[in-house]
Simulated scan of single mutants.
Amino acid sequence: MSVPRFAESAAVFVISVAAELAGMHPQTLRQYDRLGLVSPHRTPGRGRRYSARDIEQLREVQRLSQEEGVNLAGIKRILELENEVHELRARLAEVEEDRRRSSRAEATMRRRLFAAGPAGDIVSVPMGRPFSNPSSELVVWRPTQVRS
């Protein structure tokens, strides 16, 4: 049986499991939530649900506090900035993907050839391929100059 995969931001862990995964007491998680350090998602019944990303942040709060000696106000500001960077990177990835899609669409449009169809309508003809229906060929007529 395989372990189910879920998004990093999926709020799936109840407070007791999140506390165990982060190596903290559940009361500490509640305090961090009240201070706005790590704010889990809420169920309709107001229960806390933590994501894998929330647990990573809880571990980072603990590391900054215990190993680096940063106070909780400083930790809050660091987390705010890290969250902003995370959101900006996600937005940048979206913009780059939109630009790639747009570039591919423009390249496709540049490679298209248009011709008049049998009924006088405009039809797209793939580049480098002969017309499949000879009656749809476009013939250009240029009158010869008459010499006097």
Rank of each mutant, 00 (worst) to 15 (best):
M1I: 01
M1Y: 08
V3R: 15
V3M: 15
R5T: 05
F6M: 05
F6N: 03
S9G: 02
S9N: 12
V12S: 00
V12L: 09
I15H: 08
S16W: 07
V17E: 08
A19Y: 02
E20P: 06
L21Y: 10
A22W: 03
P26E: 04
R30N: 05
R30E: 03
Y32E: 00
R34L: 07
P40T: 04
R42E: 02
R42F: 11
R42N: 05
T43A: 02
G45R: 15
G47M: 14
R48E: 03
R48V: 00
R49F: 06
Y50M: 03
Y50Q: 02
S51T: 03
D54Q: 01
Q57P: 00
Q57C: 04
Q57R: 15
R59D: 02
L64T: 01
S65E: 02
Q66F: 07
E68S: 13
E68F: 13
A73W: 06
I75W: 01
I78P: 00
E82W: 08
N83P: 02
E84H: 11
E84N: 10
H86L: 12
A90T: 12
A93I: 07
E94D: 12
D98Y: 13
R100D: 03
R101L: 14
S102W: 15
A107M: 14
T108W: 12
R110N: 12
R111W: 04
F114K: 11
A115G: 07
A116D: 08
G117H: 02
G117P: 00
P118M: 06
G120W: 03
D121V: 08
I122D: 01
S124G: 02
V125F: 03
P126R: 15
P126L: 09
P130M: 13
S132A: 14
N133T: 07
P134H: 05
P134E: 01
P134N: 05
P134W: 06
P134D: 05
S135E: 11
W141G: 03
R142C: 08
P143H: 09
T144M: 08
S148R: 15
